[in-house]
Design a protein around this nucleic acid. Structure first.
Length: 873
DNA sequence: ATAGGGTTAG
């Protein structure tokens, strides 16, 4: 197929791979390179040979200079030789070309090339051709290499090897493999040099594409008799890149002539495939065998210490590095040290290494910035980012921005979040996948889900993180059904690539199941987690405990909790919160007493909420007073909001108000005022309600629920005028009420109901059904509570509106579509209104069904005319 | 022939 005329090797203009490797003119060479200006070559035939010194002697001098790396001297000798009129021959050119290659002097190399052509050696000597090829492979460009190779007369093994190696240097993996195939067809035997390059090229393809050839290379290597160390190392590294650590370990163990690179390769194979303990162990074994680690060893093993958070080992390695100049000055080691210290929460040590590094390259800045971001020190990260550009004059690369973007997103003081997108466009990094993922996350979090979706759809190459990020986008925007839909789609996506959900996917999507009370879906995910060994993951386990609890299966949730192999604060918090939501405050407190990890801020929020829902005012207050002294947890505004709720719900409104006045000046009072306003609604306290609402509307003029609550308080008290005024003010401000929304799962679908709207195909039928039930309920003594209906309209109309409340529609849907006796589980995005609560009690008796309604705060378990919350919620 | 930092979750 490809004989002497390689179709792919005809001179073609390939795009340059590295701009710095482009053929350059002499004038445009950077001046900083320390070399004398290259003199023009005297055209060889310009002077007849009058010299008596024979050419062999000149060549001997040339060769001895290049052998001793005296490249400049070699070139001077060559020039001298041409000046005195000695015509260089096919032995002189290889010697001088080697010197040119050593100096990376492309322009001189090109002049030599001209001379070679003029004298005709390019068509007669393989050796000259090979050295030219080698020269272009080191300092030219792909197109030069292709042209030279094409003109080498009788290509030998060295020609092919140089060609393949050069293509690998230019990351032309596909071309490299194609040339290797041609070499095979021309029956030129590969050597260990060939195999090294080919193995490297293979490893840059995916395993499915590269493994076949890779194994052939392995076979060749086994049959070969010459020096195998290089090939062996290259094969180890190839297998490691595909994650086949066992294979690279086998090669390492079977091989006797290990060198330092073999050890380094093995250590980095382990470290890059998550076998951190093995990597560290190998370092110690290496030292034990008397092999001295170098900078590469240290830079490869430090990430293992970082991941394992083995600060002690990391420090020992640092000490070792300090004792060895060559390691200490290795810039890779510096970045790895910064990363290790930051990951071990030793920010100060990390910063000290960073500060103490003399010639700081962008990479060490990246390590420091990423370290800050991981520890939530967003401002520090942003400051460093600015410093790197403004003070150090360095250019951020895509990695820098990918680290700093989450800092922009999460740093409250940083307002112009979307501006960073412009910056990315300006720097031309828009095609970077990490940045696209990070941008998607940013837009979701500033409430611009549409833009996230657009980026996601336009991405040419998606990865698992892209899918996870998009799912998270839906979750943070409360589009839970879309989140579940995407979970489905990722597993059989249209572009022939499917993705396997990982632990992060599951923990992202489980809260969606919980929000929708989608128990069947949740169980399906649980099954997936078990089958894929993800269920024992603490984070997934905690999310499962949470999901079962929020779907109303508290005992299942508890069983799962008890069996989890590993628990952390979050796991405990989730369970305490679950008991609280189910109105089982005593048990929540019991869990708090036996928990074997230190409680955190969230634990106390869960505890206060539990006390609040179970009217355990004294227990809650007691812990509130002791949380700082006995548990070392500083109360934050969320805690105040909970305790205000605890007091307010129990009717101690004045105490609640007083608590707000004792809050630290700087703290955020929104939560606390909201709690008080809610309590005023329950206990019909117009005066305090007004105070709370005034404060709230001043602080958050765009939140609908504040207006709605005070308006409800007024209308329940019969103060219609004020109620209407509030409504009017709300309308003038352009504030829209979040529509009430309820969900019920039927088979494997979640059905969504919105108040008053007939989006659901059955909604008319459902409204009729509710109205029919209405009559029966009234006969049993039900009195509609119309106080939550804002409009000043007649009673019948009000009742009609009440019938259309989303939770009633969802319940009706459940009754009509499930066999008698089935428990009905409904979830609601807001709090259940008083009328729905009373009505559901009656419904549960009339239809003889258990009905579980979960709102944002807690559970209502209706059975035979009564509710588990004892009308206290 | 071996080595660098990055995006998603609670």
């Amino acid at each position: 197929m490809l004989s002497t005329q390689l179709p792919l090797l005809t001179p073609i203009s390939l795009p340059p791979i590295h701009p710095q490797n482009l053929p350059q003119h002499h004038e445009s060479r950077p001046i900083r390179r320390k070399q004398p200006p290259t003199p023009l070559i005297v055209t060889p035939e310009a002077k007849p040979s009058t010299q008596s010194r024979p050419i062999e002697s000149w060549i001997e001098t040339l060769r001895s200079h290049t052998r001793s790396n005296l490249f400049r001297e070699a070139i001077s000798t060559y020039i001298e030789m041409t000046i005195v009129g000695v015509l260089p021959d096919n032995f002189a050119f290889p010697a001088v070309l080697k010197a040119v290659t050593g100096l990376q002097d492309l322009s001189f190399g090109k002049q030599l090339h001209c001379a070679v052509v003029k004298l005709g050696y390019h068509a007669s000597s393989v050796t000259v051709g090979n050295t030219l090829l080698h020269m272009y492979g080191k300092c030219g460009g792909v197109s030069d290499v292709l042209q030279v190779f094409d003109r080498i007369p009788q290509r030998d093994q060295v020609s092919w090897n140089s060609m393949i190696a050069s293509l690998c240097r230019y990351e032309e993996w596909e071309l490299a493999l194609e040339v290797f195939r041609s070499m095979h067809l021309e029956r030129v035997e590969p050597s260990s040099f060939t195999l090294v390059s080919v193995a490297q090229a293979c490893s840059n393809f995916s395993m499915t594409e590269g493994l076949r050839l890779g194994k052939q290379v392995h076979g060749y290597s086994l049959r070969m008799c010459d020096e195998k160390t290089f090939t062996n190392n290259a094969l180890m590294s190839m297998y490691a890149k595909w994650g086949m650590v066992d294979d690279s370990k086998y090669l390492f163990e079977q091989f006797e002539n290990r060198d330092l690179v073999s050890w380094n390769t093995m250590i980095s194979s382990f470290a890059q495939n998550g076998s951190f303990s093995e990597a560290l162990a190998l370092l110690y074994e290496m030292v034990y065998e008397g092999i001295k680690p170098d900078g590469v060893t240290i830079a490869s093993v430090l990430p293992a210490c970082s991941h394992l958070e083995r600060l002690q080992s990391g420090k020992e390695i640092h000490a070792f590095a300090l004792r060895n100049d060559n390691i200490r000055e290795n810039s890779f080691v510096g970045s790895a040290l910064v990363d290790m210290y930051c990951n071990c929460r030793e920010m100060k040590s990390g910063y000290r290494v960073f500060q103490g590094t003399s010639k700081r390259k962008i990479e060490i800045w990246n390590a420091m910035i990423a370290g800050y971001v991981r520890s939530g020190l967003y401002e520090e990260a942003l400051n460093l980012f600015i410093e790197l550009e403004v003070v150090a004059g360095l250019y951020p690369n895509p990695t820098t921005i990918a680290s700093v973007l989450p800092a922009c997103v999460h740093c409250e003081k940083f307002h112009k979040k979307e501006g960073i997108h412009g910056y990315i466009v300006k720097r031309g990094f828009t095609r970077d996948r990490y940045l696209q993922n990070a941008l998607m996350d940013m837009y979701s979090r500033v409430g611009k889900l549409e833009i996230s979706k657009k980026i996601f759809e336009k991405m040419e190459v998606k990865d698992l993180v892209s899918w996870n990020t998009m799912i998270t986008g839906y979750t943070v925007s409360s589009s839970h059904d879309d989140a579940l839909l995407l979970l489905h789609k990722m597993q059989k996506s249209d572009d022939n690539v499917s993705y396997r959900p990982n632990s992060i996917t599951l923990m992202t999507v489980l809260p969606s199941c919980a929000s929708l009370a989608a128990l069947v879906k949740g169980k399906e995910i649980h099954g997936y987690a078990i089958r894929n060994a993800l269920a024992s993951d603490v984070a997934v386990g905690s999310a499962l405990v949470d999901m079962y609890a929020k779907c109303g299966c508290l005992s299942l949730s508890r069983k799962l909790f008890d069996r989890l192999p590993e628990k952390n604060v979050i796991t405990w918090n989730v369970l305490i919160m679950a008991y609280g939501m189910h109105g089982r405050g005593e048990e929540a407190l019991g869990l708090f007493r036996i928990m074997d990890v230190k409680p955190d801020e969230i634990t106390f929020i869960a505890i206060f909420a539990a006390c609040s829902h179970s009217r355990m005012v004294n227990e809650g207050l007691d812990l509130f007073r002791r949380m700082k002294t006995d548990y070392g947890v500083e109360p934050i505004s969320d805690h105040y909001a909970c305790v205000v709720d605890l007091l307010g719900r129990a009717g101690q409104l004045d105490e609640a108000y007083e608590l707000i006045t004792t809050m630290p000046i700087s703290s955020d009072r929104v939560g606390a005022w909201s709690s008080l306003l809610g309590a005023c609604r329950i206990h019909q306290n117009v005066k305090l309600g007004e105070i709370s609402a005034d404060n709230l509307i001043r602080l958050e003029p765009n939140v609908a629920s504040h207006y709605v609550l005070i308006s409800n308080i007024y209308s329940a008290a019969g103060i219609w005028e004020k109620s209407i005024n509030v409504r009017k003010k709300m309308k003038d401000m352009g504030v829209k009420k979040e529509p009430g929304c309820s969900w019920i799962e039927l088979n494997d679908k979640v059905h969504k109901f919105t108040a008053g709207h007939s989006f659901h195909p059955q909604s008319e039928k459902l409204q009729e059904f509710v109205e029919k039930l209405w009559e029966k309920m009234k006969k049993e003594g039900y009195i509609p509570d119309t106080s939550c209906v804002l409009h000043n309209i007649d009673v019948e109309e009000k009742e009609y509106i009440l019938c259309g409340h989303s939770e009633k529609l969802a319940i009706a849907f459940g009754i009509l579509n499930t066999p008698p006796g089935t428990t009905i589980r409904v979830a609601k995005n807001l709090r259940v209104c008083n009328d729905c609560h009373v009505a559901t009690k009656y419904i549960s008796r009339i239809v003889q069904r258990e009905i579980i309604v979960r709102d944002v705060k807690r559970f209502h378990h209706f059975r035979d005319g009564s509710c588990s919350c004892g009308d206290y919620w």
